[in-house]
Write a protein that binds this DNA or RNA. Sequence first.
DNA 1: AATGACGTTGACGCAAACGTAAACTAATCA
DNA 2: TGATTAGTTTACGTTTGCGTCAACGTCATT
Lengths: 128, 128
Amino acid sequence: MGSKTYTISELAKEFGVTTRTIRFYEEKGLVQPLRDGQKRLYTPADRVRIKLILRGKRIGMSLQESVDLIDMYDPSRNNTQQLNSLIDKIAVRRDRLLQQKKDIDDMLAGLDEVQALCQTALGKRKKK
Amino acid sequence: MGSKTYTISELAKEFGVTTRTIRFYEEKGLVQPLRDGQKRLYTPADRVRIKLILRGKRIGMSLQESVDLIDMYDPSRNNTQQLNSLIDKIAVRRDRLLQQKKDIDDMLAGLDEVQALCQTALGKRKKK
DNA sequence: AATGACGTTGACGCAAACGTAAACTAATCA
DNA sequence: TGATTAGTTTACGTTTGCGTCAACGTCATT
């Protein structure tokens, strides 16, 4: 029953952030770990939340945006109203994500070109 | 010869940013527009730089990172040393971009799931 | 000549996302 | 038992990326 918990430094180490960062997320209400006396205890669910937040960060989302996104994943107490507006929000997000994907592909293509230039500039001496 | 130039507000409008933003980029040395007396005149090259900077922003790059990336696109005065280190940098960037792409795909998949849930939840009332 | 529209240079303000130092506790290792 | 290690709170500091005046110049109308 006592499913696994994590200490703050375990998670910090796993995700490559400082403990300060994780505490900061708590200050902002992004996670609410349990306590063993003074010490914070993180459940697997907490761990996932942090993971998702950091994933959002990697593509330039603000912490709040990540949280908003995470909240979408839980259409628990939703009336028809809310479900419809949720669908709209999803559409907006999807558009942004697709734009970002395009941006990334463009950049990758650019990098390929430059790399090719570099290699022919170097390769002339090597292979042929 | 006198190839086209743009005013600051033209570019601001085109890219959906304020003129303040573009001046800020100049303060930081990201662009160096010509002058007609006091007024800034942006060349097509300046315009492209700004465009690339904003593209970087969309996927969470800092302004400086965008500039670093743009500088890669110009392997002008490169000796073998620099070409090799450039290739290394490109590899690093590519890895990051691929990770970001994966992050985006994961999020898109998540959104698809949630949307499906929403739609079945709604559809049950509609159809029956 | 006055009214806008557009441009300029400071300079201060501000939110986000932590960094960093101080000062403390609680458990553990030697 | 003293030292080290990991945790805690409080609080001020820092960087980035602009927003927001203020105070002024320059044209083109009206």
